[in-house]
Amino acid sequence: MVKKKIKKPLTVQQKINRRTFLSFGIFGTAAVGGVLGWRWLYNSPYEVKGITGNQRIPLRRALNKTELAVRRFLYNENHLVKTYPKAMASKNVRVNSDIGIEAEKKFDVAAWCLQVKKPNGEMLNVTLDELRTLPKTEIVYDFKCVEGWDQISYWGGVKFSDFLNHYNLHDQAQLQYVGMETPDKTYYVGIDMPSAIHPQTIMAYEVNARPLPLEHGAPLRLIIPVKYGIKNLKRIGTITFSNTRPRDYWAELGYDYYSGL
């Protein structure tokens, strides 16, 4: 006989047993790992409310990466939102929210003026009549709400980039963000500059070729077709510019800060 012990080849039954044991072992371990991983994510603590809020910390961290990557990779100012003929615009434009413009709050449209805060502290006041002297831009497009509904609507107003040019806000346009707030400061949005100066972003004073009614944000509202409705602030009171993200109503409540389309 040979000195060295020869390993006997495994019998078929041994092979079956071995492979079954290994496969089920790995499967079970992975399944338990998956459940534990999910429970860790689902039960992880929420972020402290800052510019963004109301989101599980690891989820927010991951999304900050993916959403930023998508935006950098995809966003192109030449990608225009599809427009439609005026005849297709809805006659009953949906009113979905009145945060910041509640009917019971007294508001005098005639006394309104747009306040533009420059970073050096200077304040620029613009009346509606002054805005009306600027070139008018109209758009008929499919308004998209974060809830899921969409509606073709027809708006008219001043292109935001025209507004910046006309009032020589070139230095401000170099900053990364625009902040807008309602006069009562209860609704506010932060917009990244590329989206703000997108050729289809307008400050609208008309809907269906008539002055904005109060429930649509009279006298001036933001229409930014490259973003969800939550960013289309009604009744603009103040405009600010900064390199840090301005506060944003829905981002504080857990929605994506960018909310771009």
Partner: peptide
């Protein structure tokens, strides 16, 4: 739970 749904869905 829309805000939550979007976050999980988009990740």
């Amino acid at each position: 739970r829309l805000w939550e749904g979007m976050a999980f869905h988009f990740l």
